[in-house]
Design a protein around this nucleic acid. Sequence first.
DNA 1: TTCAAACACTACTTAAAGGTAGAATTTAAA
DNA 2: TTTAAATTCTACCTTTAAGTAGTGTTTGAA
Lengths: 133, 133
Amino acid sequence: MKLNTTSQYAIRIVTFIVQNGANNKYTAKDISEKLSIPYKYMTKIMTLLVDGGIISSSRGREGGYSIEKELAIIKIGDILEAVKENLHQEKCVIGNGSCNKREKCILHDKWITAKKAMQEIFENTTLEDMIIR
Amino acid sequence: MKLNTTSQYAIRIVTFIVQNGANNKYTAKDISEKLSIPYKYMTKIMTLLVDGGIISSSRGREGGYSIEKELAIIKIGDILEAVKENLHQEKCVIGNGSCNKREKCILHDKWITAKKAMQEIFENTTLEDMIIR
DNA sequence: TTCAAACACTACTTAAAGGTAGAATTTAAA
DNA sequence: TTTAAATTCTACCTTTAAGTAGTGTTTGAA
């Protein structure tokens, strides 16, 4: 039970920027070094976050990454969505094809409950929550 | 958020045996066909379950797999342990090295709560629970 | 005592996730 | 207007999970 590496990095990157001043600019080199994330792998993730509207980038000399949106409106779930983590996995836990409300697998109800708890974390935690600690 | 394929298959296999009579014998061919799990992949998983003491096997003609233990004492968690699913992952959700009780990452507390809920499912559901449905 | 039907073992192949390399593009300062 | 510092694009390499192949071993019935 874990988030994949890309998702983990994505959250750490965004958290790093938010905690050090969202409107400041951070270069890929800087972020990569501070968070010990492989440079090339990181820039790949950055592109996803930029495309997803989480982070804004400026190219060229004096370029870098920052966060422009109102912090409060960006949720952890948005970050995960940007890097394609499948949050709303509807498939049966044990891969049982015919698992639905009518004909449930043995873990269905319990699993759904726990899964909802996870999803709520991602839906209810915003970037703003990351500053206060 | 999901169990890996091996774990999913393992639970489905054990569930299948339990629901069709735990003390009966089931051949690999039979199980593989009924559950649409690739034969060779399945037998590999079976070996893990046998080694883990979940399932007992007998070789040769008239051989097969069955469950001898008291159903009530075998938990889903035991099955997952047998196939090496890492249930008690202690690492930080976002891969933050220095995440512990003293210096927590921003998701720590919430995550732990949700994770505990998942773990409890696996610890508190026994094979016996699988028969009643 | 043979032999077919079963599980078990070792090694390989394929697909997906994680990670790397290098060149192209953009931009602002000198 | 050149150049260095930055992001972006495309393609590749590596590692791990998923799945396959073939052979060996065991066992009970004919």
